[in-house]
Design a protein around this nucleic acid. Structure first.
Lengths: 209, 209
DNA sequence: TTAACAATGTTAAGTTTTTAACACTTTTAC
DNA sequence: GTAAAAGTGTTAAAAACTTAACATTGTTAA
């Protein structure tokens, strides 16, 4: 299992989330077509992904939910876990923190940053908020490897630079403004407006058929 | 120009956003490699996308920013505009509203919905908040075509059903729980946890090289 | 004026991703 | 106990997407 396709990585994460829900419901086994239905993809694709990670289900019984969850964890999680920071404790930043609050996960949001003095020093859902001026120290002290940018667009570029200088290894940019990072830092940009425009486009398309 | 690739649609939206920024800076023309750099893709890809939409730049001068913005608008926007609702006025819902506030766009967020009586009846950044019980009427009255789901995960499925029954044509689900919609309704699911796990995975991968 | 350059537009090749096809194996039904 | 059904695992084909190659054409510089 050398090079898992990009898309497979994404789906594995999604499979796991679906599987965790099944586990909660007391399900012990699951068929490929059940997973497929949840994710709106085909059963073949599920089986193919699982083949790629070398997991073998039991014939006629499907896949063992617990085993599969663990295996996916072995592949996509890092053993020691990864600490994450949120830069920008506005609505979006807080939404993400709540999202994660209490989730079992190798990913831990350990710090938030903001410029607003009212927020600095407080704790939100267990996550302390620091001044952005202390970003460098906190990143080092807390061994933070990934930063999620939820700052206003105008601060995007500076924030990204700051994160890079602090030694962060991965950035997830939720700002509508693209940023640049050097090699060695993984960058993922996600623009909510693009996604919404895409939905609108396909709605329009459907109408004009 | 019959079938634009999915990915091209997404990029067109992104190009436009980049172009709007350039316009603000007073730039009148832009080269394919400049656009490419902003979006972290190749110039060839930009040119190919523009070829697909039939736009022709001027040799050695690049593309006319204003013209291109307009053309992209003609393709991805619908003429009359599309009205959008946000279901769930929590942090994420409010973040989205602020994101959009004041943006020139054919997409207009015209309504928010929630169950919290403290929120119902208020206005947030110009968007009125209604009780979710009135969803159906408001959707009809306001000709809302797209719904953005930002409700807690446990309400995801019911909310989706409700939206479908109200006659909505497109759903953007920001809930971590996948939902189902019938044919004729376009569904886009986006899970923030997946994206973050992906970033974490590639960070881990980079380390173990 | 002519050569070098720097851009676009387009066709072709390459790569990645998805889907189809099918061989295999339990279980179920008769 | 044999056939049909319902699963998995895998190879092969198809589709989607990206990148390369290159022809073309203004522009600049010698």
């Amino acid at each position: 299992m050398k090079h898992l396709p990009h898309k497979t990585i994404e789906r594995l994460s999604q499979y796991r989330r679906a599987l965790l829900l099944c586990l909660d419901k007391g399900k012990t086994h699951i068929y490929s077509h059940e997973i497929a239905k949840i994710q709106h993809i085909t059963a073949v694709q599920v089986r193919r992904d699982l083949m790629l990670i070398g997991y073998t289900g039991t014939l006629r019984k499907g896949y063992n939910v617990k085993e599969l969850i663990d295996l996916i964890g072995n592949i996509i999680d890092s053993d020691e876990g990864i600490n994450v920071a949120i830069i920008g404790m506005g609505n979006l930043g807080r939404a993400l923190i709540n999202y994660f609050a209490g989730k079992r996960s190798k990913l831990k949001i350990v710090a938030g940053f903001d410029t607003n003095p009212d927020k600095i020093g407080n704790t939100m859902s267990g996550v302390p908020c620091y001044s952005i001026e202390h970003l460098r120290e906190v990143v080092a002290a807390e061994k933070i490897k990934v930063g999620i940018m939820t700052v206003p667009a105008d601060y995007a570029v500076d924030t990204a630079d700051l994160l890079v200088k602090s030694g962060i290894k991965g950035i997830l940019n939720y700002t509508p403004k693209p940023v640049n990072v050097p090699d060695g830092v993984y960058l993922e940009e996600y623009d909510m407006i693009t996604t919404l425009e895409k939905v609108a486009f396909y709605v329009k398309l459907q109408e004009t058929d």
